[in-house]
Nucleic acid binder design. Structure first.
Lengths: 206, 206, 206, 206
DNA sequence: GCCTAACCGAGACGGTACGTCACGTCTTTTA
DNA sequence: TAAAAGACGTGACGTACCGTCTCGGTTAGGC
């Protein structure tokens, strides 16, 4: 292997792909989405025009609109939130709060509202999005809950997957299904405090 | 209705539209969706071909693909579930259980998974779907919760809209975002019992 | 058969193709050629734009650029010339003169110079052009020569196909291979008189 | 050469162009043509692939497809035929015979049939081909005829340019316009003898 | 039992976007 | 500096749908 690598056969050959072009495409797409262009009008042709790029350059990197969207959305994803670590309750509030704030930020809002829409048209792409975006976030929540169970803040018999859905579901439902719904301050606390009540060990009840 | 028809200005004139054709279109579309045709390939042209119908005949009834989908989905919607009325808890379980069973039925499953996807591309259509399908279901839940508050099964200070989202959210999130997730028997009970814990009046705690 | 024909199954079905559109396409193409647009720039896309027509409308009638050109050239072909019939010599002069005049007319000149060029790229199309344009003209000449042989104006042992090439060749070579060459008045007479000398029966020599 | 190389200013600077590469390109193109690749499919990209050469290497030598073709065709041109010089008649027969044989040779046949086709798309290139290939051949014929006139084998009032077209035209017409036409042995003699009849001085008639 | 307006299927129409390919130019590394 | 490789912007290719528009041919009333 080290031998093969050091041979002159084909390290990279030819002109390398321009990172600037890649950025231009993704940011051009993002700009169009932010400008409120309906998803149905977001053609590859238009993206290419906006980014000042040839169609072939897009197809060289992504095999279609949906594949491109996975990367666009990934680029728009904010970094994982910092968790205080003081308690399960506080960590969950931080997680949900970051979800709420992301949805309120107009930039990602337009993306979040519409992004998964287009991708669900293609099971293959949805899988990619699921693996790259949804699962990691989900794991963050599961990790918090697992730690909570170890610490005795959550009953041992609780289905953590379901618990996670009970925390995240109410927020996501408002974001995805009812974009007009408001996401008031304090929403995260209300949800966490209510659901935690049903997960707490019986001994710790007031 | 008979009053309107008997008006003298223009009763019907000419050949009336065939109900059979209307049914053929909607059921043809449904058949295609059930057969796993990706939403992106569901063109009006293909629907017309499948239903053995002219394109104009479709456009005479619906102004586009999305409008048609609203009716297709409405046709696939099961009737509102019967609520036992014995308690808030039992009614909520019945509601969630009907949601779960609908998602498990393969026929509507394909529709549910993908329906809102296409429609969200068109705000206008999404509004129609929202008003005709989502809001009524939602109101059913709110009604149950309101009755529960009146009966004292739920604390007076609880935000019922949010409470509703907390019951429905976990189920919908699994249906819409993770079609591969399982919806095990007893899911409804688990969710309702857990969340209800946090909504119950302090006095009724064990 | 008469039964089948009289049944209502499918006389023509659907909207008939517009003859006006067909004309617009052919004349649009001709206009572009006359305007000196290089053949390489004569894209279907541009023809459609010029004719104010959708691309699909062109492809519905012709399977490609070359097929279309066959019809464009056929449309530009002048009618067969009137032959005086007084003698082989006079008929041949008339034939060659019509060829010369056609080449001088700027309209068809541009076509003639470039038309067969594009078509030869496709053997299939060239065959069509050959069958529809070249062969009929050629037959006209052969007919004249055959009549001349019957009348004794041409020796019986003459290969008429070759003879025809000897009359037509010199003119065509100037048109196709040397567009800058001049086609002076009297050219037809010179060629016919010279070649006829070699075809005449020995007895009729001066 | 050695003198030029030893000059101090800029003998050649850098890596010299490879003649092998040049040959590979021209012969690769010829191979493709011989293999019956339709002219329309003869892209620079394909030629480069076939010759195992970079596109830029081709563009460094020729400014486009047509320029390249001029050299390809020139490379395929057979040398000028040896003329017996015994009489105008014999020289012309030799000229026409060489034309006939060239067309029969499959190698150049494919080229001859299609070569001028592509080039006529570009007036500039056609001019180059005309000057480099057509004119020299043509001059050879004119030279023979001029000598014939001096010797008294051809009448003094004969238009030699036209005479040349009358000899060459019938053969070329068969090659270029009717590739399926046969070019039988004895064709050259028949044409020359027939046309010469009309060019001979009156005094020498039988 | 006609008349006639609207329906119905088929499919042509001007468009727009698709995904592919070749153009001629450019930017890499290697020789 | 040449050469192979291949990315780049451009634009045509031929296909598929869009939503609209004729066509010939039903199919129900109202007269």
């Amino acid at each position: 292997m080290s031998l093969a690598d050091s041979r002159s056969d084909s390290p990279v050959r030819g002109r390398p792909r321009s990172e600037a072009v890649e950025r231009a495409i993704i940011e051009g797409t993002m700009k169009l989405l932010e400008d409120g262009v309906p998803l149905a009008e977001l053609s590859i042709e238009r993206i290419a025009r906006t980014a000042g790029v040839g169609k072939a350059t897009i197809y060289r990197r992504w095999s279609g609109k949906e594949e491109l969207f996975v990367d666009v959305i990934r680029a728009a994803e904010p970094p994982d939130p910092d968790l205080p670590g003081t308690s399960v309750r506080d960590d969950l509030v931080a997680l949900l709060e970051s979800l709420r704030l992301r949805a309120l930020a107009s930039r990602t809002s337009a993306l979040l509202h519409n992004a998964h829409v287009q991708m669900k048209s293609s099971p293959r792409i949805w899988a990619a999005y699921h693996a790259n975006v949804i699962v990691p976030r989900r794991n963050l929540g599961l990790q918090v809950l697992r730690r909570g169970r170890e610490r005795g803040e959550i009953r041992a018999d609780v289905d953590l997957e379901l618990a996670n859905d009970m925390f995240v579901g109410p927020v996501l439902i408002r974001i995805l299904l009812r974009p007009d719904a408001d996401l008031p301050e304090g929403l995260a606390e209300q949800i966490v405090d209510t659901v935690m009540e049903g997960l707490r060990p019986v001994s710790s009840r007031p």
